[in-house]
Design a protein around this nucleic acid. Sequence first.
RNA 1: GCGGCUAUGGCGUAAUUGGUAGCCGCGCCAGACUUAGGAUCUGGUGUCGAGAGACGUGUAGGUUCGAGUCCUAUUAGCCGCACCA
Length: 944
Amino acid sequence: MEYNFKEIEKKWQKKWVENKTYHITEDKTKKKFYVLNMFPYPSGAGLHVGHPLGYIASDIYARYKRLQGYNVLNPMGYDAYGLPAEQYAIQTGQHPAITTVKNINRYREQLDKIGFSFDWDREIRTCDPEYYQWTQWAFIQMFNSYYCNNTKQACPISELISTFETCGTDKLNVACTEELHFSDKEWKTKTDIEKQETLMNYRIAYLGKTMVNWCPELGTVLANDEVVEGVSVRGGYPVVQKKMRQWCLRVSAYAQRLLDGLNTIDWTESLKETQRNWIGRSEGTEVKFKVKDSNVNFTIFTTRADTMFGVTFMVLAPESELVAQVTTSDQKKEVAAYLSRTKKRTELDRISDRSVSGVFTGNYAINPFTGDAVPIWISDYVLSGYGTGAIMAVPAHDSRDYAFAKHFNLPIIPLIEGCDISEESFDAKEGIVCNSPKAGITPYCNLNLNGLTIKEAIDATKKYVEENNLGKIKVNYRLRDATFSRQRYWGEPFPIYYKNDMPQVIDEDCLPLKLPDVDKFEPTSTNEPPLGHATKWAWDTLNKCVVENSKIDQKNIFPIELNTMPGFAGSSAYYLRYMDPRNHKTLVSKEIDEYWQNVDLYVGGTEHATGHLIYSRFWNKFLHDIGISVVEEPFHRLVNRGMIQGRSNFVYHIKNTNTFVSLHLKEKYESTPIHVDVNIVSNDILDIEAFKASRPEYKNAEFIMENDKYICGWAVEKMSKSKFNVVNPDMIVDKYGADTLRMYEMFLGPVEQSKPWDTNGIDGVNRFIHKYWGLFYDRAGNYIVKDELPTKEELKSLHKLIKKVTGDIEQLSYNTSISAFMICVNELSKLKCNKKEILEKLIIVMAPFAPHVCEELWETIGHMTSVCDAKWPSYDEKYLKEDAFNYIISFNGKSRYNIEFPANATTEEITAAVLADERSLKWTKGNVPKKVIVIPKRIVNVVI
RNA sequence: GCGGCUAUGGCGUAAUUGGUAGCCGCGCCAGACUUAGGAUCUGGUGUCGAGAGACGUGUAGGUUCGAGUCCUAUUAGCCGCACCA
């Protein structure tokens, strides 16, 4: 029989479906292993050769773990909600649901050809109501929870209400939008609406009037991770800051836990570092400043408490509420002018133009340490969203304050011994503090920092601040709450309606709240989100789902939430749903969750480092708090697959002719490179006939060849249609088969590394599979496997392979495993080894990589069951043992010659033999060696 | 500016974790078989040198009997954060 990959692959893919080979159920007699890929967004372009890279890597791991006897969960699904389908709908009128299904089917078709071991019975789609009802359900739980800083977990909001009823905000330590103070009596006198408004300050999912990233082009709000350098990640449209009433998730409450959790998981250091950066913990001090001659107080945050004596002015963010309180009547006009100027600036303007600007409020603040009155300014270099939106400026030791002080001619007081601040500020946190007033000199302060290091001075100041009630020690995080509303159609509807303008939760029994059909995907004429077109749906929903629907205020506002949830909503807990995907009663049953626990191996790209991977961890921690997810961290080990870039090919067109010149001759002519479809180029040699046929104007093209070949140039670029460098996995599968594709993708290099796709070299892997086949069938197609006892050499070759591959798969170093296969198959074919005992184990070890051909061969040698249910062979060191070792003999570290010693030779024997060897005498030149170092099995170094 | 990662033949990469640098594959060279080929098989292939040998892991130092691997400095490239007080 010949190796006919087309028939073999078709046959086994069919059998796997028929026999439900990859269908997995909970089996408590086996240890579980959960492998997961970041599920794809099914785009219209289909899969290119880069997409399956991670899937193949995880599939190999899943198959390997299964052979080791684990019960392996390896699911797949689709992140089906998203902007592209909706943008496409706006342009073409094609409903996103239709586009999405079409794309999913195309993805599935492509995935099926590659031979994955996914359990498709567990498939989920985020746009499926069966699925998204649990997204909505989780949202309701967040709405009904607050975060307690004492117990460090989410708690029911009802508990908070009873706290308010008994003691108000006294001793309250909870996460909130702003610090409120009221007594139990005051709480009781609040109206129902006031109470609801107050609670909004504490809910984990809350409606907040906050500054958001508004993208006018997309007509929606975006989360921080969806904006890069002032433009939207999707589409690259400008983004402006805008104050809007939006749903938010109090992710910031979990900042510390998100940070701490990183120490418990097996992720790459760089990814953890990216998350640490994004969370941005900074320890500092909050200090209260009094506005001169008034009762107004305000608080600033600083990490440099040691610089209190160098404060020469204060700066407020333009958006700060203090601006209005502080500005004097003389300055009102100028301040208003500045505010309107900064308001117009987009995020992009702010980033590109960092010239100093600001305005004086006319007012002064009193430095609590010195009693000095320092001017209060306004400037947009202070951000309203971080700290308190106000800073104390220490121009001597902060470059931004320094630039501001120089520009507006404000004083600068140096505080570090010997620092030079004539040209720039001294920002480094090193040196000895000076210039703090001697104790007792001012009536305000008896703190003397002189002579201390900065670290000591910060600690001393913190202590002083706390003791004198001037402020408090505070930890700030860069991580902001996530905006959770999108003014979009193609997303999960919120289970929310409004009563007296206050949001109310739709009863859980009414979930899922299904997304209605609409015929227009743009905002309504009154500028409501697209769901505003679905008026019938809105009223039907209210009548069905709201018990007291007659009481709804139908006058002023549209009574149902018209925003939809953002993309990350559906992808935040999908790994839990895979465990129990068809459960109608709960997100995941307790028993099943306890079995599968969390994801053991998660494979996906780094692009989700500050988005999905933060939200998902947050979401899981919340579910853990309310008793759903048993493990706090969802993804134990995470491997980042590298991006596959394109490798473009070029032909060189000679100016004003219809002639193309081969790469190495192009310097002789005036030529311009033109992209040529990589699919008609092989090993950089152009298929001239295919090229001529590709476009009418090339039909009569002429070529200047070298060695009768036309050689193309190449470059690494992004894989895209316009560069004609997209390689489709289907084409590779058609030409070489899925097993070759799988092995070649892995052979390209480490999974984590980004690399250009280069079809050159795939022949090597293809040849290898043929050679492997050749161990079972000779060239005439005769079956040649025999039931004979293997030789020592054959066993050694096999066991070497098993040892290497077992170790490599754990590390996901598949490229080196494949090298090992090639070596082993080469050795066996040279030994003319066709013994069943050896080949049987070879099949099992190779099955995770090339499942189709291995299934076929497994059947060929006489097995009735799938190779998936075989047992991973163990290796035996006894076959790997050497009789003798080749020692490298070196002198002063320079290797000179080799001697073979028996494996049981002692150090003394080796030393003596080396010193007696006549070649040694040449290198020692008659000197007695100072030392002889023997590294067992490896090397003997003689030190002269 | 701060933080992280990487650097090895013509190319993709490997190195028992401090022990003969370049495994495996591509490409290239030579040979075999051939209907003379973008097929298959066999052998060779870091650089210089006829050779013995010398040199060689971005650059410069250091530790060590011994460094691609550890330390210091430096250069280049990639990534993350960035007016975060």
